[in-house]
Simulated assay, not measured.
Amino acid sequence: MSLERPVPEPRDPVVLMPATALVLGGDLGGTSTRIVIADHDGNVVGRGAAAGGNPTSHPASAAANFGQAIHQALGDLDPALVRTAVIGAAGGSALSNPGVRAEFDAVWNGAGLIVEPDFIGDLEVAFASGTPEPDGTVLIAGTGSAAGLVRDHRLVRTADGHGWLLGDDGSGFWLGREALRSLLRALDLGEPIGALGEAVVKAVLPNRDEQANAEREGYNRLRDDLVRTVNSRPPVLLAELARTVVAAYEQNDKTAHALVKRAAELLTETVSRLRTTSDMGPFVLAGSVAGESSPVGRLLRQTIHEHFNGEVLTARDGVGGATWLALGVLDPALATRSNHARLVS
């Protein structure tokens, strides 16, 4: 009879922690601010939400929205029980400004929290929301675009993310700007503007009297109206035209197809600055442009499969990813796969 004992199936480690230990995760986005508080078992015990908390795009209200979400999440919980906090900030670079950071510190301390918050970039949070793996690559393509190389859950290199003026190639802003530029070129040449061009005109000039303007001024007046209207608005609003491009793509508009294809190529080029064909680890894709329902996202997944190794995953709940990272800061043994599944589902 063999005396060998069967090898048990691996399990998540059992960690003894104070029953009162809590962690806080945050996600400060351009459209919303979300806070989650969880216990050391990964059970959510508090949630809070408010309007946009990106200090770059909402400098006047970001800190106040941050504070509102924190107070809502804490509820009746003792803030002193929060032992670690990880907060992803899409506009995190603005927090290096002493005045901006002072506003955020004021609402943090005003909530009674005594732990020092760890503000990290949205790339790290997006990666953690998509996979519990420590190493891999992340690409965010929404209003802007940026890629990052992650090692041991930390960002070690980035590509793009330079903003609408200097980069963000293949992003929603890029799609919107290129759609408008293609329309203006057609108007310059006196060519038909096509389905995409017509949709862009309606989006930018919703109250335009098409027949009257065409009879009186022709294309020159339309071109001038478009240029004047767009230049009078915040540039980032061009990203709203990305939806117009996608709609025209679904209608088989030739120009929209070319723009979608080029956006996917540019995003692939951004990733290639960080990752070689032999590198391993998963790809995590985040943002509306890189989403599975986006034509850019579908083409992007195809090109990644063709040129790189590694599983392609979609980012999930960003605030859940931040909370899971906070558990790992509290104790690395708590950053388990089961806790990850519980927090990002």
Rank of each mutant, 00 (worst) to 15 (best):
G287F: 11
F308K: 04
A263R: 12
R298M: 11
A286Y: 12
L241G: 04
R243F: 11
H257W: 03
N252T: 10
N213P: 02
E269G: 09
H257P: 00
H307P: 04
A239C: 05
I304P: 03
E215Q: 13
A256V: 03
L226P: 11
A248Y: 10
G297C: 10
S272V: 12
V271Y: 02
P282H: 07
L259S: 06
A264Q: 08
T276Y: 04
R275G: 03
A315D: 04
V227Q: 00
E250W: 15
R316S: 06
Y219R: 06
T244F: 03
G297S: 06
A242E: 01
L238R: 06
T255Q: 07
L222M: 14
D317M: 06
L299T: 09
D253F: 12
E215A: 13
T277V: 10
A214L: 14
L300Q: 04
Q302P: 03
T229A: 03
L259D: 00
N220E: 13
G320D: 06
V227G: 01
E217C: 05
Y219Q: 08
E217S: 11
L267E: 05
A258L: 14
P295F: 06
F283S: 02
G291P: 06
V227S: 00
P282C: 07
P234V: 04
L274S: 07
Q211L: 11
G281D: 05
A242V: 09
G310S: 08
P235D: 08
E217D: 13
V296H: 03
A242P: 09
K261D: 13
R316D: 07
V260I: 15
F308A: 01
T270P: 03
G287L: 05
R228L: 10
A263Y: 10
V246P: 04
T268F: 02
V236M: 02
T276L: 01
Q302T: 15
R316Y: 05
A315G: 05
R301T: 09
E217F: 14
L222C: 08
Y219P: 05
R243D: 09
T244K: 02
P235Q: 10
A214C: 04
E240S: 12
E311M: 07
E292T: 15
I304Q: 02
D253T: 05
T270R: 01
F283W: 15
A239D: 10
L274G: 03
N309M: 11
E265V: 15
R228G: 00
R298N: 04
L313A: 02
E311N: 06
H305P: 02
G297E: 07
E217L: 13
L267D: 03
E265M: 08
S288V: 15
V246E: 06
L300S: 00
D224K: 14
G320K: 10
G297N: 07
Q211I: 15
M280W: 06
K254G: 01
Q251L: 11
L238F: 09
V271D: 00
E217K: 09
G291F: 07
N231P: 03
L299W: 12
